[in-house]
Computed example of a mutant assay.
Amino acid sequence: MPTVTIGDRTITVEPGTRLVLAIEQAGIAIGHRCGGYARCTTCRVAFAAGEPDEMTAAEYAKLSERGLLGQYRLSCQIVCDRDMVIAEVPMTLASQGWTDTGPAPEPTVTPDPATHPRATLAQG
Rank of each mutant, 00 (worst) to 15 (best):
L68G: 04
T120P: 00
S64H: 08
W98N: 02
V20H: 06
A48T: 08
P90N: 08
R66M: 14
Q123A: 15
A49N: 13
I28Q: 02
L68A: 01
L93E: 06
G7K: 12
G124M: 05
Q77R: 07
C43W: 00
A46H: 06
D112V: 12
S64A: 14
T108C: 05
E14A: 15
W98G: 01
D83R: 08
V4E: 06
L68S: 02
V4G: 10
T108W: 12
Q77P: 08
F47V: 05
I28M: 06
A57T: 04
T56G: 05
V79R: 14
K62T: 13
A46V: 14
M1P: 13
D53Q: 13
D83A: 13
H116D: 03
L93G: 05
G102H: 12
A38E: 01
A87Y: 08
A87K: 12
A94W: 02
G50H: 04
E51K: 14
R82W: 02
T42R: 04
T17E: 13
L74K: 06
P117W: 04
A61K: 14
K62L: 15
E106N: 09
A29G: 01
A57W: 00
P113H: 06
C40W: 01
V89T: 13
P111N: 09
R66H: 12
T101G: 01
G16S: 10
V13Q: 04
W98V: 07
T41W: 01
A26Q: 09
P113Y: 03
P105K: 11
C34G: 05
L121H: 04
L21Q: 14
A122H: 10
T56E: 09
L69D: 11
Y60V: 03
P111C: 06
I6T: 09
T115Y: 02
V13W: 08
M84L: 12
V45H: 07
R118E: 13
L63A: 06
V45R: 01
P105T: 04
V13S: 04
L93M: 11
T5H: 02
R44M: 13
G67W: 09
I30L: 08
D100P: 00
T110C: 11
P15N: 13
Y60P: 00
I6G: 03
D112N: 15
E24P: 00
P15F: 07
L63W: 05
L19Q: 04
A104F: 04
L74Y: 03
L121V: 05
P15R: 15
I86R: 01
E14C: 07
M84P: 00
V4F: 01
R44S: 09
R18D: 08
T110W: 07
G16V: 11
R39W: 00
C34N: 06
L68M: 14
R33D: 13
R66A: 12
L63N: 03
A57C: 00
E106L: 15
L21I: 15
L69H: 09
P111Q: 12
G70Y: 04
A46Q: 15
W98C: 01
T3I: 04
V89H: 10
L69I: 06
A49W: 10
L74G: 01
G16C: 06
I78T: 14
C80I: 11
T42M: 04
M84G: 08
L21K: 12
A38W: 07
C76N: 07
M84K: 05
A57K: 13
R73H: 10
Q77C: 08
T10R: 13
D81N: 15
Y37K: 11
F47L: 10
H32F: 02
T10L: 06
Y60R: 09
